[in-house]
Amino acid sequence: MQTTILICDDDPIVHESLRLYLTKEGMRLRSAFNGEDGLNIVKKEKPDLVLADVMMPQMTGLELCREIRKFSQVPIMMLTARGEEIDRILGLELGADDYIVKPFSPRELIARIKAVLRRTENHNQTETDSDATDSKKNKLINIGSLHLDLDRYTADYAGTPIEFTKKELDLLSFLCLHPNETFTREKLLEKVWGYEFGGQTRTVDTHIKQIRRKLSEFKVLFNLMTVHGIGYRIDMDKELQQ
């Protein structure tokens, strides 16, 4: 079936320029010029991916992301003309899968869209594959009182829920499953986000920052370390490794 991309942006030029590039990739586009219309299209038509501008009339992209996450895990990429860190943090914390600042390279955007779609397809295939018993072993991660459930995408510490976004939980679980191993930001983008990208890697830093903030009130039995000039790793005692 043809992939459907919903563009939510109040700028007609953005719609036309993206339509030019994305239709060449064989994708079907739907357009909304405000957040409310975008939300209605998501509910009725269930697109494969949503591109949402942060600043829109009637309902902002951040509000749209929050509303969509109440009923759907459709991949969401945030678009914005602003580069403030607060926008990135809010978008990612509300459940956006990625964040790109205007003006952006169409080639970079297409690469990200394809990677998100591949990751979603692979995840769905794994869930429906009856022979994927080995992967199911890593669906539950228990480290002391910290419990990560990748089947339900929930987390808790000794019964107290921790509200991670899907991508935060993906990143944390990946590092937990590879304890004491250092990963560059580029490698984490490839392994967790599903694409190779040699440009801006602040997305990884933003997610790490949010994970640390949410874990800070709990006595987790590992350290989420910054390896300066390289990337990140989780330091964990061998007896705690799953």
Rank of each mutant, 00 (worst) to 15 (best):
D11E: 12
K46R: 13
D97A: 07
L90R: 12
L117S: 03
G26L: 05
G95D: 00
D87W: 01
T126E: 13
M59D: 01
S105G: 15
R69E: 11
Q58K: 11
H147N: 13
T165C: 12
E108T: 14
R28Y: 05
S17Y: 08
I234Q: 04
A81F: 01
H15M: 06
N223H: 00
E93R: 12
D53Q: 04
P47A: 03
I162L: 14
L49A: 05
F222A: 01
D48E: 06
L117G: 07
I211S: 01
P106E: 00
C65M: 05
T160F: 00
D237N: 15
I89F: 13
K139T: 09
D149T: 14
K187Q: 14
K219Y: 04
C8K: 00
G83Y: 01
D129K: 07
D98V: 11
G199T: 09
R118I: 05
Q73W: 04
I162R: 07
V101G: 03
M77D: 00
N180Q: 13
L22F: 04
L62Q: 02
L146D: 01
Y157L: 09
L169R: 09
Y99A: 06
Y157Q: 01
D9W: 00
G194I: 12
I89Q: 11
A132C: 15
L146G: 14
L146E: 10
D134C: 09
